[in-house]
């Protein structure tokens, strides 16, 4: 049941802190190392706090066929971070994902849980600018 418990912790706190991990290990009666193993296995689980929002660029086969790497390059150069990193202002965590299931409308990105299809580089960067504005305001 470790996975489900970790998912619950993350849905409340945004990530699984060391303190939470140790508490859970005691509660479940399993070594903390085993829980760490579960966290490191699943890309959705995080041991560090994420940014306020999350932008995912899909690299699934269909999106790759439709130029996902161009989208990724634009996002990376605009945000100045590599995949799985968060912008220094803590606003956006950028992730590379493998298939959002939106393959007939490739290329796709997701901002938080909001999937967007038929993306182009300029449009995506424009959207990221919105987040910067929210920060500036």
């Amino acid at each position: 049941m470790a996975l489900e418990a970790l998912q619950k912790i993350q849905s409340h706190a945004g990530y699984v802190s060391d303190a939470a991990l140790n508490q859970l290990a005691i509660a479940l009666g399993i070594p903390a190392g085993e829980l760490l193993g579960v966290i490191s296995f699943y890309s959705e689980l995080r041991a560090a706090p994420p940014g306020r929002h999350r932008v995912c660029v899909c690299h699934g086969d269909s999106c790759a066929a439709m130029g996902a790497h161009h989208i990724a390059e634009s996002v990376e150069s605009y945000l100045g971070v590599a995949p799985s990193q968060t912008t220094p202002d803590g606003q956006l965590t950028y992730e590379k994902v493998y298939c959002l299931g939106n393959c007939a409308l490739s290329p796709s990105i997701a901002i938080d849980e909001d999937v967007q299809g038929r993306c182009d580089c300029d449009g995506v960067v424009q959207q990221l600018k919105r987040f910067q504005k929210i920060k500036d305001a």
Binding site: G60, Y98, C99, G101, C103, A104
Partner: peptide, 11 residues
């Protein structure tokens, strides 16, 4: 789990 990139029937 529909993990195969390029599929969306289950979704």
């Amino acid at each position: 789990d529909e993990g195969d990139p390029g599929t969306y029937a289950d979704r």
